[in-house]
Measured scan of single mutants.
Amino acid sequence: EWCEALHSFTAETSDDLSFKRGDRIQILERLDSDWCRGRLQDREGIFPAVFVRPCP
């Protein structure tokens, strides 16, 4: 499952995944309604679900 970043997100901890608006992120797991775990290029981490939308 893939999503597109609606806003940029800067990691606040070593577990977070930083990304820029427009990045396509592979969703690996939905942790709960607020957080997802994903992969961007060679990095993995968690990020807020409200920062992304599903890719068509």
Rank of each mutant, 00 (worst) to 15 (best):
S33C: 10
T13E: 09
P48W: 00
R53Y: 04
S14P: 14
S33G: 15
G38A: 07
D32Q: 09
D23T: 04
R43P: 03
D34Q: 15
D23P: 02
S18W: 06
T10K: 13
V50G: 15
L31A: 03
R53W: 04
K20Q: 14
D32H: 05
E12P: 09
L28G: 00
D23S: 03
C36P: 00
R53T: 14
R24K: 15
C3S: 04
Q41G: 15
C36A: 10
V50T: 14
E12L: 13
E44N: 05
D16L: 14
T13P: 01
P48G: 01
I25L: 06
G38L: 05
C36W: 15
G22E: 01
F19N: 01
K20V: 08
F47Q: 00
G45N: 06
H7M: 13
G38Y: 02
S33T: 10
E12V: 13
D23H: 01
Q26H: 11
E4Y: 11
L40Q: 06
E29C: 10
L40H: 11
R43N: 03
V52Q: 02
L31Y: 09
H7V: 13
D34F: 11
L6M: 07
P48R: 11
R43W: 04
S14Y: 08
F19C: 02
Q41S: 12
R37F: 07
F51N: 15
A49N: 11
L40R: 07
C3W: 03
L28P: 08
K20L: 07
W35S: 10
T13M: 10
D42G: 15
G38C: 03
C3R: 05
G45R: 02
T10Q: 14
C3F: 11
P54F: 11
T10N: 15
P54N: 12
P48A: 00
D16M: 10
E29R: 07
R37V: 10
D23Q: 09
E4Q: 07
G45Y: 03
E44L: 05
G38I: 00
H7N: 13
R30M: 06
S8H: 09
E12K: 15
A11H: 04
C3M: 07
S8Q: 08
C55H: 09
C3H: 12
F51E: 05
D42S: 11
P54H: 09
P48S: 06
G22Q: 02
R37G: 03
R43L: 06
D16S: 15
D16Y: 14
L17A: 04
G38W: 01
C55Q: 06
C36F: 13
K20W: 02
R39Q: 08
A5M: 06
D23L: 00
R53V: 09
R24Y: 11
H7A: 15
G22D: 02
S14T: 13
S18K: 02
W35K: 11
